[in-house]
C-alpha cells in the first residue's frame, strides 16, 4: 500500500523533473535566441544582393514613404539595402565619397539621389565602368551611363505648378520659385527642367512671368528667411512655388506673419501632414503637388532586380504626380487611409 503510493510519487516526481528540465532548456534557448542577430526579413533568408542607397539628408521627401517602398520591394527580391544619407552642406564631396565607398565595398548596385553636376556624372560613369549598375533618383542624368532613372519628370512638375498658378492668378503678375539648394546656381533656367516646365505653361496660358528663383539651405528656417527676402525685395509677387515640403511650410509661416494670405498664391510640394491640414483649412495653400515616394522606392529596387537578372531594365520609370487642393484633399486623404488599411 505504502509502496504503491511511493511508486506514484516517484512517477509524479519524474514527470516534474522532465518538465522542469524541458522548461529550463527552453528558457535558456529563448535567451540565446533573444541575443541572436536580427534578420533582414522575417523569412530569415539570406540576401542575394547588396544595394547601397545614397540619399540626400536634406530632402525630406525621401524619408518614410520612400524607405518603406524600398524595403518592401527589397524584402520581396531578397536584396540587402544599405541606406546612406549624405549631408551636402559642404558641397558634393560627401556624395562623391559615398559613391567611392560603394565602389570599394563592391556593392551589387547603387541607387543614388543624383544631381545634374559634372563631377557626379563623372563619378557615376567611373562606377558604371566597374560594372556596378547605378540607378538615379531625383534627377535623370542620362549622360552618366546610369541604367535607369526612377522618379517624377521635373518638367511635368513645373508644368503642374505653372498650371495651378495660371489658373489661380488672374491678370498679370510675378512668380517666384523657391528651390532647394543642390543645383549649381550657375544653371541657366533652361537647364532646370522644372523651371522650364513652369515657364512654358505661364508663357502659354497667362500673363504671369517667372521672375525669381531662390535656393534654400536645409531646414524650415532657411525657407522663412528666403521668403521674407523675396517679399521684401521684390514687389508685385503674386505667386510662389516651393519645390519641397519644408520650404512650403516655411513660406506659409511668413505669409501668416505678414498677413498676406489671399494676396499671394502659394503652390506647395509634398504631402506632409501639416501641408494637408493647411489645404483642408483652405486659402492658405492653393495646391500641393504630390508624388508617391513609396512607389519610387519600390520601382527603384524592381528596376535593379530586373537588370541584375535579365541585363535589361526600363531606362526611365516615370512616377505619376498629383495636384491636390481644397476640393480634392478629402478624397486624397481617404485614398491614403485606404492604402494604410490595405497594408
Amino acid at each position: 500500500m505504502v509502496n504503491k503510493k511511493l511508486y506514484a510519487l516517484v512517477f509524479v516526481l519524474a514527470l516534474i523533473l522532465l518538465v522542469s528540465v524541458g522548461m529550463g532548456l527552453w528558457v535558456s534557448s529563448a535567451l540565446s535566441q533573444a541575443s541572436q542577430n536580427e534578420f533582414f526579413w522575417e523569412s530569415k533568408k539570406n540576401a542575394n544582393y547588396h544595394i547601397m542607397v545614397i540619399l540626400d539628408a536634406s530632402d525630406q521627401a525621401y524619408s518614410e514613404a520612400f524607405t518603406k517602398g524600398l524595403m518592401d520591394s527589397a524584402k520581396e527580391y531578397q536584396i540587402a539595402v544599405e541606406l546612406i544619407k549624405v549631408d551636402r552642406t559642404n558641397g558634393n564631396q560627401a556624395l562623391l565619397d559615398a559613391l567611392d565607398m560603394a565602389a570599394y565595398v563592391k556593392v551589387d548596385g547603387i541607387i543614388v539621389h543624383a544631381f545634374n553636376n559634372q563631377t557626379i556624372i563623372d563619378k557615376i560613369q567611373e562606377i558604371t565602368k566597374m560594372s556596378i549598375p547605378v540607378i538615379t533618383l531625383n534627377e535623370d542624368i542620362a549622360s552618366s551611363g546610369r541604367i535607369s532613372y526612377v522618379g517624377v519628370n521635373r518638367y511635368a512638375i513645373g508644368q503642374a505648378a505653372g498650371k495651378v498658378l495660371a489658373d489661380s492668378i488672374k491678370g498679370s503678375g510675378k512668380i517666384a520659385v523657391i528651390e532647394q539648394k543642390g543645383y549649381d546656381e550657375t544653371y541657366s533656367i533652361t537647364e532646370d527642367l522644372l523651371l522650364l516646365g513652369i515657364k512654358d505653361v505661364l508663357k502659354a496660358d497667362s500673363n504671369l512671368t517667372l521672375e525669381l528663383v531662390r535656393y534654400t539651405e536645409q531646414g524650415v528656417l532657411s525657407a522663412e528667411t528666403v521668403a521674407t527676402e523675396i517679399l521684401n525685395e521684390e514687389e508685385g509677387i503674386s505667386g510662389i512655388f516651393c519645390t519641397n515640403g519644408q520650404n512650403t511650410l516655411g513660406v506659409v509661416q511668413v505669409l501668416l506673419d505678414k498677413n498676406l494670405i489671399g494676396d499671394i498664391i502659394l503652390v506647395g510640394y509634398g504631402n506632409e501632414e501639416e501641408i494637408l491640414n493647411f489645404l483642408e483649412k483652405g486659402n492658405i495653400i492653393e495646391a500641393s503637388i504630390v508624388t508617391d515616394y513609396e512607389v519610387i522606392g519600390q520601382e527603384a529596387i524592381k528596376v535593379f532586380n530586373d537588370y541584375i537578372n535579365t541585363g535589361l531594365a526600363s531606362n526611365y520609370v516615370n512616377i505619376d504626380l498629383r495636384v491636390i487642393n481644397e476640393a480634392t484633399i478629402l478624397e486624397y486623404r481617404s485614398e491614403m487611409s485606404k492604402e494604410h488599411e490595405d497594408e
Binding site: 542577430n37 533582414f40 533568408k45 539570406n46 540576401a47 540587402a80 544599405e82 570599394y104 565595398v105
Partner: peptide, 20 residues
C-alpha cells in the same frame, strides 16, 4: 559570408574595404 542581417553586411563592407 552570407548576408543575413545588417551586421553581416557591415562586416562584409569592412572586409572589402580592408582589401581595398
Amino acid at each position: 559570408a552570407d548576408l543575413y542581417n545588417m551586421e553581416d553586411l557591415i562586416m562584409k563592407n569592412i572586409k572589402e574595404l580592408v582589401n581595398e
